[in-house]
Design a protein around this nucleic acid. Structure first.
Lengths: 210, 210
DNA sequence: ATGTCAATTTACACAGTGTCAAGCAAACGA
DNA sequence: TCGTTTGCTTGACACTGTGTAAATTGACAT
């Protein structure tokens, strides 16, 4: 813990993340955030013009903290396309739990707030880059199923790796993180890579849901 | 169009569906619904105690209108497990567009309202029955990948067929309904059935996104 | 006519977001 | 030392949306 003073915007962001990442996870109001920060509700508005802006800023702050790119390094270093796909799926799949609290809040306001939807879309677009790169690598290897459209394969991988799917499997169905990773890796390989060996034990996790 | 008088609750439900299924699809407020019905906002509360209750009732009313079970009949008549999986995926995939408007509204309140979440979960649980039946049929044929856990395979199919995935591919990515069906069928077969022939042209729709 | 009962309307309470104005206190520069 | 600026507080208010309560209408039976 550093002893240097922290500026108020950062304190607000920290408090927001803490609330969003709490296990019981109600969606916090501006009052909640202000109280958690130890300042007045109106003071929050001095630094963030709206609730949506604050949530978006919180995602960016969190990305900085988690340093997403380091996790993706093995993916870029992969030799074959299949290897790259595999590494990317694993890296992203393990990143999701770190952002889930914030993602949940953003996705919740997305239905009513166009600006939030745009922000979330932008964020997911970054992830789509990784999908696109993995698919392209497969295409160069010729391991993509014949006649496959690159854009379309990217869309599909992007959808498979959505936070909603992670949420469904781990939160609703109760899968362990390891089980999720193993299964999604298997499904991505089975669907997108001609690597038929990977088809074996796609769905044979040793760790069944609760 | 029948000429017999329609009772107020039904009129409200019809107006609600109309609003939810409108192409531009903002999430309607109680005032919107009342206006569309031609009654006062408070009169709506006379028949439905809360917004959530109204939305839930609207889903049930819609299910009655659409008669979901008839579409699923071919699935139950299928001979092989793979055939059954295929028929189920197609039937459900074609049902989603009919319920999407309402589903969207329910999913939106799900994040904040536990009662709505429960209602939506129940509804999705019905669909899960179909997933479970298809997976069991595969298991009996021995076409499920070796070592696969039945529960887990059901979870996975259920997730693949989620409304969110349909939304992502057709609404966000702009896929046509036909393209969605073809791709999801291919993915389900590739991941869950040992029918390797189905792997061919999983991602070769003639109908690319806009 | 009158009582009754359901449907409806007017009015109100409450939570949450966002805005505005006035004041306060510590830091900073002349 | 005296202004000035900066960041925060307090308090009030407008607006939207949900949900509740009380008063009103209107049809229908007695």
């Amino acid at each position: 813990m550093s002893s240097e003073p922290i500026d108020t915007p950062t304190k607000i962001l920290q408090a927001t993340l803490k609330l969003l990442e709490a296990p019981d996870a109600k969606l916090p109001t501006m009052s909640d955030i202000a109280r958690a920060t130890g300042i007045s509700r109106q003071a929050v508005y001095l630094h963030f013009p709206s609730r949506t802006d604050l949530l978006v800023a919180a995602t960016r702050y969190q990305d900085r903290l988690n340093d997403i790119d380091t996790g993706l390094a093995p993916s870029r270093g992969a030799r074959s396309g299949a290897e790259r796909l595999d590494a990317f799926v694993t890296a992203w799949g393990n990143y999701i739990p770190k952002i889930y609290g914030v993602a949940r809040a953003i996705m919740a306001v997305t239905d009513t707030d166009a600006e939030a939807a745009a922000a979330w879309n932008t964020r997911m677009q970054d992830m789509r880059e990784g999908c696109s790169a993995a698919i392209s690598a497969l295409a160069e290897d010729g391991t993509l199923p014949p006649g496959t459209d690159i854009e379309q394969a990217t869309d599909l991988l992007w959808t498979i790796l959505s936070v909603r799917n992670w949420e469904n499997l781990t939160q609703t169905c109760g899968w362990s993180q390891d089980c999720y990773i193993a299964t999604i890796r298997g499904m991505a390989m089975a669907t997108l890579a001609r690597d038929l060996g990977a088809l074996t034990d796609v769905l044979a996790c040793t760790d069944p849901p609760a």
